[in-house]
């Protein structure tokens, strides 16, 4: 057992998955029929994509799930060829007590369209004895030939009621109590992302078993990259070059993803010391820059252009 709650409390079977009732119902029907199509799971982080894939494998294969299920990441640093080799190796041998194996390919939307084409050919090559489940944040970034071969499932942000119920169950299991207000606070800082909910609670529970509202806020502040706030503050106080250096440390050394940084900045904009009109302007610019990144622009230059805009606000 691993003492990381997201893993420790990850449901073993589809009927215990939090929320996404319509999806789990469909998946359970597939398991009953023992007929699994290729699938595309699309949706924001922390909504259950990986959990559903793992639970489906466990429901379908029972004890043999580990032999018949492979999890791999499309954004493998060493390139798409490494991913394809892994898939080929895995697909070469027959499934144990089953007709086919399942390959779960995380972050499929990080692949360029050329790499996706290559992946499509690999899918076809092995579709006799393998099924693919791909996960992505945005299905629009997956090329049509792949989408059309898959059953597409859209994972929505979890309903408040589902998250609240989960928090209560977690409290039982891990021996902490949490006030009504603190639950609200958890909801606010985690944006329907169940992984973030869980991480916030686990961190808070390290120092107290009665979690209060201010615990939630201080913990969540310590969990997000503080540097983002610092970078924005430096930008506003006319230290552009320093702020830029810090951003590049975050992206190059820490290896944080550009799109994730844009999201963090997005959350911070409303806390900045600027007028509401200016906040709106920044959000508009953020939208443009985020779109450009999906178009192939480099995240660091685009984020710096945003910072340059922020720096000019105070002029």
């Amino acid at each position: 057992m691993i003492d990381v709650w997201t893993e420790k409390h990850r449901p073993d079977t589809l009927d215990k998955v939090v929320g996404q009732d319509e999806i789990t119902e469909r998946l359970q029907a597939f398991v009953e029929e023992e007929s699994i199509p290729h699938m595309l799971f699309s949706g924001p982080p922390g909504t259950g994509k990986t959990t559903c894939a793992v639970a489906l494998a466990k429901d379908l294969y029972g004890d043999e799930w580990k032999q018949n299920f492979m999890e791999t990441n499309a954004s493998e640093e060493r390139g798409i060829d490494v991913v394809r080799d892994k898939i080929k190796d895995f697909a070469r041998t027959k499934a144990i007590n089953a007709d086919y194996k399942i390959i779960f390919l995380d972050e499929a939307d990080s692949l360029t369209s050329d790499a996706q084409q290559a992946l499509r050919r690999t899918m076809e090559q092995f579709s006799d004895n393998c099924r693919f489940i791909m996960s992505c944040n945005y299905s629009s970034k997956i090329i049509d030939p792949i989408q059309s071969r898959c059953a597409v499932f859209r994972f929505n942000r979890l309903e408040e009621e589902d998250v609240k119920g989960y928090i209560q169950r977690l409290g039982h299991a891990e021996d902490f109590t949490i006030s009504e207000d603190s639950v609200e606070a958890v909801m606010r800082v985690s944006d329907g992302d169940l992984r973030r909910v869980t991480n916030v609670l686990q961190t808070a529970a390290i120092s107290t078993d009665e979690i209060e509202e201010e615990d939630v806020y201080s913990v969540s502040a310590s969990l997000k990259p503080e540097e983002i706030t610092e970078i924005l503050e430096k930008t506003l106080s006319n230290n552009f070059i320093e702020a830029r250096d810090q951003l590049s440390d975050l992206m190059i050394e820490r290896g944080l993803d550009g799109q994730d940084i844009v999201s963090s900045i997005h959350r911070e904009v409303y806390n900045l010391d600027i007028t509401d009109q200016q906040k709106l302007e920044l959000i508009e610019a953020l939208g443009e820059f985020e779109f450009r990144i999906t178009e192939g622009a480099s995240a660091d230059v685009q984020i710096e252009a945003l910072m340059a805009k922020i720096a000019a606000l105070k002029d």
């Binding site: 999890e71 990441n73 503080e226 820490r254």
Partner: peptide, 13 residues
């Protein structure tokens, strides 16, 4: 933990 390197990097703190 069934997570991508990117997830882990984001939650490194």
């Amino acid at each position: 933990l069934h997570l991508s390197p990117r997830d882990v990097k984001n939650d490194l703190p």
